[in-house]
Design a protein around this nucleic acid. Structure first.
Ligand code: FES
Ligand code: FES
Lengths: 141, 141
DNA sequence: TATAAACCTGACCAAAATAGTCAAGTATCA
DNA sequence: TGATACTTGACTATTTTGGTCAGGTTTATA
């Protein structure tokens, strides 16, 4: 089980951005430089974040991105969802009644993976962007 | 974040095997047929499980595999470890002091991913093969 | 003792996912 | 009228995944 860079970068970039929340728009170029993420790749990521209304864009010189909602209301779940970083543990289609082996019953481990998925999602549901910014400030003291 | 088939199959096969624990060796061919997993692939997986002393092989006709330890003592962690299904959330090398961005400090989200990794591993540490077999029996009642 | 069942090993390979790059824009501020 | 920065879509190299294939060796049993 591994986390992909896309998800990791999305959160990283948003934490960076959130630190300037309410002060001024943050350009992707700045995030790119500070966090060491390719600018082109960031653009792809932010395109998705904008479509899911997590950020708002400000065009032109001195433009950039700002949060579209309160940092407290942006959960990791929302971010991951926006960039298609899905938690997928089962093999079968969830709504289907068929198992991953093609048989008519779910496989021996289906329930286990389902529990695991819930377990992981719990973590993402709890953490907000605001939490992350605060934890980060504490560390720097 | 997705679980790979290797890990999924390993657990699936072991649950199947564990149901016959103490009765007789279980051949990979049987597991293959019952669980719908390619025989050749199962052989790769069991080769690893044997090397990590999770199962024991019995060669020859009527042979197969048997558990090498009590099902209660085999945790998901051990299984995943054996087949190299690693939980990897951080990008950087864990022991290194450098961050994933090449800088000398850990990135903004390092701690978060570390927490996540612990969170997931907790799940794997708790579940034993015996738990899985029992849960499965209950479901069938 | 022949034969078939079953384990064992390593090489090989195709498809999918990942992690980007590249090119060609458009909008806006100073 | 630049320069800055967002916008979009296509394209691609690399890695990971999920296997297959070919050739063994071992051992019970008929
Ligand atoms: S994972 Fe759902 S049936 Fe196997
Ligand atoms: S994940 Fe460890 S420093 Fe970024």
């Amino acid at each position: 089980m591994r986390l992909t860079s896309k998800g990791r970068y999305a959160v990283m970039a948003l934490v960076d951005l959130a630190r300037f929340d309410g002060i001024n728009p943050v350009s992707l170029r700045d995030i790119s430089l500070r966090q060491g993420i390719s600018l082109d790749y960031l653009e792809q990521i932010f395109s998705k974040l904008r479509k899911k209304e997590i950020v708002q864009s400000v065009r032109g010189t001195q433009g950039g991105y700002i949060l579209n909602r309160n940092a407290k209301e942006i959960k990791l779940t929302n971010i991951f969802d926006a960039v298609d970083e899905k938690v997928k543990t089962v093999q079968c289609k969830k709504d289907s009644k068929k198992g991953c082996n093609g048989k008519s019953t779910k496989c021996l481990t289906h329930n286990l993976w389902d529990e695991l998925e819930t377990h992981i999602n719990n973590f993402f549901d709890k953490k907000s962007l605001d939490d992350l910014v605060k934890e980060n400030l504490e560390r720097r003291l």
